[in-house]
């Protein structure tokens, strides 16, 4: 944390710190992330699969573009502050906050048309003939037409979901 602030003060160090904080190791160095979301991610296809390609926290949560990245970092540091001030330092508190945190992510991904998903999954290169019938039917219609974006249909792809009563699509 100290390093993070120092990095902001000494502009030269900024990018280095940005890179350092842009790793999964950094994200899960804080135990609230390690104990909750990281453990859940481990059971999903984005952690272990037949191709051995995996997604890390920043792959889904940090934009690749520099300006977006900074903006996101400011937002993420709010979550870090939450930790420091002890608002989400237990599982219960995390679960209580989860809907709010998830909604932030849904909103972000909705607004950028699921940019982070598309950094790895490019519709252009999806071979529908190799997808299941359901996937094919959904992707070739509502996704392709732009009516929906990945996160509209794939909520909870990496973590457990909070109570979704009232959330669109459930």
């Amino acid at each position: 944390m100290g390093g993070f602030i120092a990095g902001i003060i000494f502009w030269g160090g900024f990018n280095t710190v940005l890179e350092a904080t842009n790793t999964e190791t950094f994200c899960i160095s804080c135990h609230e992330m390690n104990n909750n979301v990281y453990q859940e991610l481990k059971t999903t296809i984005h952690y272990s699969n037949r191709s051995g390609v995996r997604a890390t926290c920043p792959d889904c949560h940090v934009p690749h573009k520099w300006t977006d990245k900074i903006a996101r970092k400011m937002q993420a540091s709010k979550e870090v502050w939450g930790k420091i001030f002890g608002t989400i330092n237990t599982r219960e508190k995390f679960l209580n906050k989860r809907l709010h945190l998830a909604q932030n992510e849904w909103q972000r991904l909705k607004a950028n048309n699921s940019l982070e998903c598309r950094n790895c999954h490019d519709l252009e290169f999806m071979d529908y003939t190799r997808q299941s019938k359901r996937a094919q039917a959904a992707h070739s219609t509502r996704l392709e037409s732009g009516e929906k974006t990945c996160i509209d249909c794939h909520k909870g792809i990496a973590h457990e979901l909070p109570d979704t009563a009232g959330v669109e699509g459930f």
């Binding site: 059971t43 999903t44 296809i45 299941s132 359901r134 457990e160 979901l161 909070p162 109570d163 459930f170």
Partner: peptide
Amino acid sequence: HKIDNYQVNINVN
């Protein structure tokens, strides 16, 4: 079809 990681609990079905 497969149902891998389909969450069915108090929060979601």
